[in-house]
Design a binder for these strands. Structure first.
Lengths: 133, 133
DNA sequence: ACGCACTGCTTGATATGTCAAGCAGTGCTT
DNA sequence: AAGCACTGCTTGACATATCAAGCAGTGCGT
């Protein structure tokens, strides 16, 4: 029998800090709403299971799908972006992303392209570039 | 023997429209960059496999993980949000809101255009637009 | 005390994302 | 024409997300 194995290392937190934050946030939100795990499951029309929400809150899920976060956000009446942020899916500055080295092109007609035009343009770009080579 | 089978139906798109859009966009972007599937895999330091990128482009992935989209966005020099949007992960508001000077997708990808390419593109845009009218 | 309706939580099964390895095609060089 | 270096693509295996079902605890009404 093993003899008091001296706890070799502080069990590395299997859970990234990001998730932990998301977890506690979710737990707090739920508490604030006064809902049970099953209550939330019900509120999302069973889109998210109580079991899964539990794991989310305990930080056991590493990459929760945005779709689920969206459902949850709706129930807690919290902006979806917040959850996405805590999950680590947003860029550092999602709010102020307009600081980009923009070139003249943007100033022009490019501003309002239809999806179709966009596609055509990209293909054309691929074409002229392949030509250059 | 088959006698000019009258193309019975456009094969039901096994793929939700959203994904298809993301797929073709990814393909176009890659083409524009002149990269091969493996080239992209390499460019992301093998963070995304060529096999997976292929499936993404063909719309076979329903919920691609944002982390991967982020890697890809970096390689194509396109804002991460654009891919997230096409993947259906952004809220309608984030996409269309007056929040920002509506940067349409294309303004971007082309962050690294030469002046010559830019001119060509604009001319081409004028062309396809005149055609439509 | 018993049961019952809750609670949060774990767990085994399933779905789906993701990749390594391979296949078939295409062009280029010899 | 044979080999090679590419290409896009499929596929079988593995990892992870997600859920249905169950377990243990807590309070509460009888």
């Amino acid at each position: 029998m093993k003899h008091a194995a001296p706890k070799p290392r502080p069990p590395k937190p299997r859970v990234p800090a990001n998730q932990r934050q998301l977890g506690t946030l979710l737990a707090d939100l739920r508490a604030a709403k006064g809902l049970s795990l099953r209550g939330v499951e019900e509120a999302t029309s069973r889109a998210v299971s109580n079991a899964y929400l539990s794991q989310l809150e305990k930080g056991k899920i590493q990459q929760p799908s945005p779709s689920i976060l969206r459902e949850i956000a709706a129930v807690y009446a919290v902006p979806y972006e917040v959850l996405m942020d805590k999950a680590g899916y947003l860029l550092p500055s999602t709010t102020a992303t307009s600081a980009r080295p923009r070139n003249r092109l943007a100033a022009f007609a490019i501003a309002d392209l239809t999806a179709e035009e966009e596609e055509d343009l990209l293909k054309y770009l691929a074409f002229i570039r392949s030509r250059k080579r």
